[in-house]
Computed example of a mutant assay.
Amino acid sequence: MTITITAFEWSPDGGKGLARDTRVRWALEEVGQPYEVRPVSFAAMKESAHLALHPFGQIPTYEEGDLALFETGGIVLHIGERYGGLLPDDANARARAITWMFAAVNTVEPPILELVIAKLIEGDKPWRAERLPLVEDRIRGRLNQLSARLGDADWLDGAFSAGDLMMVSVLLRLRPSGILDEYPDIAAYVARGEARPAYKRAFDAQSALYNGKPPTG
């Protein structure tokens, strides 16, 4: 069965790997599964055909035969469970890897997204100057905790897993802020993720689609 995912027809990040389809691409590259990409315009994301796949009108979606999924965490978990390479065989290690997936999107990502919103969407609001330091402090609080847990290990729990894939993907959003550079151990952890051949293939594929330019016509 052919796997098809959706991606932005043009992403505001200009193909820098921050759009969430990169996480799904990376997972599929790690497990060696070919896939096709269906670009979706912002207008089409709100139409009934796409809403039938993603009720919140976002990307990515994942189609495989009669299975349709949305939300990157759920998609990556499905890929890890169906194909080998992203989740450990040991039941306890597998459970811990899944826990780290949830930690990435439920604990670490929310304050990072707050920072993105504060800078890009609420940038002209009068409270921006007061809000930014508060959001940045919340991010540093999470990074302090993550740094303490990571220590000098290469990955979060033994070998690379879907938990690391999701965590690195989330942390990459911090790079433009400079906060990531304050934590050399976490920055090195992210760099290890980016150095994986599967990530490079996913990044290059996403970058080639967008080419840094909005569509014309």
Rank of each mutant, 00 (worst) to 15 (best):
M1L: 13
T2V: 14
I3E: 03
T4I: 15
T4M: 09
T6N: 03
A7Y: 13
A7F: 08
W10M: 02
D13M: 07
D13F: 13
G15S: 08
G15A: 12
K16G: 13
L18D: 01
A19S: 12
R20E: 07
D21S: 12
D21I: 04
V24N: 04
R25F: 11
W26V: 14
L28Q: 02
E29C: 07
E29P: 02
V31L: 09
Q33M: 10
P34E: 12
P34Y: 11
E36D: 13
V37I: 15
V37M: 04
F42I: 15
K46E: 10
S48K: 14
A49E: 14
A49N: 08
H50M: 00
L51A: 06
L51H: 07
A52D: 03
L53K: 06
L53P: 00
F56I: 07
G57T: 10
P60C: 14
E64Q: 05
D66C: 03
L69V: 11
L69Y: 06
E71H: 02
T72R: 01
T72S: 15
G73C: 00
H78C: 00
G80P: 06
G84F: 01
G84Y: 00
G85M: 03
L87R: 02
P88C: 05
D90Y: 04
A91Q: 13
A93Y: 11
A97H: 11
T99I: 13
T99H: 13
W100K: 02
M101L: 12
M101W: 06
M101C: 12
V105K: 00
T107L: 08
T107K: 00
T107Y: 09
T107P: 04
V108Y: 12
E109G: 01
E109W: 00
P110W: 05
P110G: 00
P111E: 08
I112R: 10
L113M: 15
L113E: 15
E114K: 04
L115R: 14
V116G: 05
V116Y: 07
I117M: 12
K119S: 09
K119P: 00
K119C: 08
I121M: 15
I121Q: 10
K125M: 15
P133S: 10
P133C: 10
P133N: 07
R138D: 14
R138M: 14
R140A: 01
R140P: 05
G141L: 08
Q145T: 12
L146F: 12
S147I: 07
A148S: 07
L150Q: 12
G151V: 01
D154I: 02
W155A: 01
D157M: 06
G158K: 10
A159S: 15
S161N: 05
A162T: 01
A162I: 01
G163E: 08
V168D: 05
V168Y: 06
L171I: 07
P176C: 02
P176V: 07
S177C: 06
I179P: 01
A187S: 10
A188L: 07
A188F: 09
E194A: 08
A198R: 06
A202E: 15
F203T: 04
F203W: 13
F203A: 04
D204A: 12
A205G: 03
Q206H: 14
S207M: 05
K213E: 15
K213F: 15
P215I: 06
T216W: 03
T216P: 04
G217N: 14
G217I: 14
